[in-house]
Nucleic acid binder design. Sequence first.
DNA 1: TAATTTTGTCTAACGGTGTTAAATTATTTA
DNA 2: TAAATAATTTAACACCGTTAGACAAAATTA
Lengths: 209, 209
Amino acid sequence: MGASKDEKYHMGSKERIHRLKEQTRVNILDAAYDIVKDEGWQALSMRKIADKIEYTAPIIYEYYANKEAILLELTKKGFMLLAGRMQEAKNKHTDLADQLEAMWLAYWNFAFEEKEYYQLMFGVEMNCCIMDEILPPGSTPYDIAAGPIAEMMGISDPEDDRVCTKYYTYWSIIHGLISINIVRKGTSDEINRQILKDAITGITRSLKN
Amino acid sequence: MGASKDEKYHMGSKERIHRLKEQTRVNILDAAYDIVKDEGWQALSMRKIADKIEYTAPIIYEYYANKEAILLELTKKGFMLLAGRMQEAKNKHTDLADQLEAMWLAYWNFAFEEKEYYQLMFGVEMNCCIMDEILPPGSTPYDIAAGPIAEMMGISDPEDDRVCTKYYTYWSIIHGLISINIVRKGTSDEINRQILKDAITGITRSLKN
DNA sequence: TAATTTTGTCTAACGGTGTTAAATTATTTA
DNA sequence: TAAATAATTTAACACCGTTAGACAAAATTA
């Protein structure tokens, strides 16, 4: 197609080159994610990424400081995705209890639908401590969930310690269930759903006491 | 001391050598654990182990098939240790609820006192699926905890699905809390204890309904 | 005791990893 | 077209897990 010709003649070459560089930056990330998806995160290597984008390995260092930076960027993408899913689920309901259930179910679904992301975010090198720095303010799972929790408890400040405690209770049981399930694939899906729902409604009930 | 002399004269050299080999087998494991404790599991390498036991790397392969086998052995040791702690905690009480609380507290304490083991067992490569094959029958956390749970629920068979579900609920929230806490060291210890106790008593209460 | 076999240990190497510096090629500028 | 700049590659370093072959020490046999 004539796109490249148009670009050559009608655009500043600086911008064109800048866009191309942006594209390879994206390509590197995509290639990395493909490899992780195909062969697992442990099989990811700089040379494999280079192969996939048809360059040699050192080129990648023009775009990312090192391998860790690539993993970090993927982690960031994962957290953004998760935040989106949770927000979306929340928006579908007005009832507080429904919101909470929907949000945690969205979290649960994300963990299995985007298993590679979830492992990168929580499993592998446990870099979920950077979550707060990475995400735009107001879009961490806490920010999304704390509102309904506080409201249900009759507490105005979502940063209140009591709210925080309940939030961690939710998070713990769900993250624990997921960790255990990602490993032990034996347990039936039905039982897991049951545990999950029981736990969520149990905690939710305990909010208004 | 004269031990070596005695050994030389009064013992078959075969046994002496066998004992020495047993010792280096242990030394390898100890060296590996020391490195993991000092520099983290990711820093563990065959050459470093060899350095520590004052041999060269290939020697290790006389004792362990490969690096994975060493990690596996350490994992096994970790599970044995955990099982011991939980059993010990259980034996200190007669009341069922007390037993459950003590066991899960022991689990919690183990995770932080033996952080390296716990990470090896659950964090790193998630090889807790081999738990059942590794441990002697009757000493998995499930085996230890299922009894009191079943009894409290008025169920005779500890393998009952309802017991299993409750067990996973306990395990999930505790494992989740631990995972989150090993990463986010920010949260105060007091709050964590509170969440843990709340969760345990909450689930325990739900057993007899 | 001397020769031979067995055992223990090490050296050297292979193919792989992340990463860097220098050389080379291609592109833009003058 | 010549010089300067940018893009890309080659080569190398230091590490990794692992294996094969050389070598020396010990045990066994003659």
